[in-house]
């Protein structure tokens, strides 16, 4: 009997995940005046945005010498591989944690009254507006070996030695997850608000347990929100610089800091440009692949 509710929500989720094509009917000719109006913006973008990007790309092939020497390093250099590995590992952990916590917050927000929801939204958004630098230092103060949290744990006898919670990879993940939670909450919340709550009631009415109606009805319907939040958080996480530099104890080098070291400290611009180009390509590739399954415009609020 419970099986009978399955096709419908899954079908709805699949529908939401299907790419949407639109606007194919208009022609260049009819759009001409609009392009003319837009052209100053496009020219500015081309000059100050695309041209520098192309220059960086060119640098990655031309410095120190013409060729693919810098790109060879992706497979031949342990350092490059390790930095990519560290970045992928930290971003994956951050994404999983931020989306999980974000989902819980968004789910709770759906099930409280409007007053509470406003308050909860405020508590999600306020840290969102605080500088990343301030937040990293706040974590450092809270979590260091003689900080308030460790003092509490030791005085309660929960641990005998203070835990090493910052100045390592764990500290970076904590700091980044905290930074990313609002980016997870907002798309998930938008998605949950679109779910017809009567579907869960229907599942309950048809005899599904509370747990089962969540896992088989509500959760599948919220997959687009989860995936969207996941992409957003992962892509933002890839470029983190300040948080790992402060909370990583100097040992957790992610891609952005690696690029900065190449450019500012050891003046290997070609190498830095190569890493930046690979990062850019990774992000574009991820968006293309994910775009095949999900309507990104809708997901990221462009529609």
């Amino acid at each position: 009997m419970t099986d009978s509710v399955q096709p419908s929500p899954t079908g709805a989720a699949v529908a939401a995940l299907r790419p949407v094509r639109s606007g194919a009917g208009r022609t260049w000719r009819s759009q001409g005046p609009y392009w003319a109006i837009l052209s100053p913006l496009l020219i500015i973008l081309a000059m100050f945005y695309f041209a520098p990007i192309l220059e960086v790309l060119w640098l990655s092939f031309s410095d120190p010498e013409l060729g693919f020497g810098n790109y060879e390093r992706i497979v031949t250099s342990d350092a490059v591989l390790r930095v990519f590995g560290t970045t992928a590992r930290i971003c994956a952990a951050t994404t999983v944690l931020a989306v999980l916590i974000g989902y819980l917050i968004a789910y709770a927000m759906m099930h409280v009254g409007p007053r509470h929801r406003t308050w909860m939204l405020a508590f999600v958004l306020i840290p969102f507006w605080i500088s990343v630098l301030v937040r990293a230092f706040a974590w450092l103060v809270l979590l260091r070996t003689d900080g308030p949290l460790n003092d509490l744990l030791v005085s309660l006898g929960i641990v005998s030695e203070p835990l090493h919670l910052v100045r390592n990879e764990l500290g970076v993940v904590i700091g980044m997850t905290h930074y990313m939670i609002p980016y997870a909450v907002l798309p998930i919340l938008a998605n949950l608000q679109g779910i017809d709550s009567r579907l869960v009631l229907a599942a309950r009415g048809l005899g599904a347990s509370a747990r089962k109606s969540f896992y088989r009805v509500y959760l599948p319907l919220s997959v687009p929100g989860i995936v969207g939040a996941g992409i957003l958080v992962f892509i933002f996480s890839l470029g983190f610089f300040v948080t790992p530099a402060i909370l990583g104890g100097g040992k957790t080098v992610m891609v952005a800091e690696f690029v900065s070291i190449q450019i500012m400290q050891i003046a290997k611009w070609g190498m830095g440009a190569m890493i930046a180009a690979v990062l850019l390509a990774t992000v574009v590739l991820m968006l293309v692949v994910v775009g095949r399954f999900i309507n990104l415009k809708e997901m990221l609020g462009a529609r």
Binding site: D78, A79, R82, V83, T86, V253, Q265, I266, A267, K268
Partner: peptide, 14 residues
């Protein structure tokens, strides 16, 4: 210095 720093940074980041 440049080469030494690069090797050193790679060591501490691994």
């Amino acid at each position: 210095y440049e080469a030494a720093l690069e090797a050193y940074l790679n060591e501490i980041a691994s």
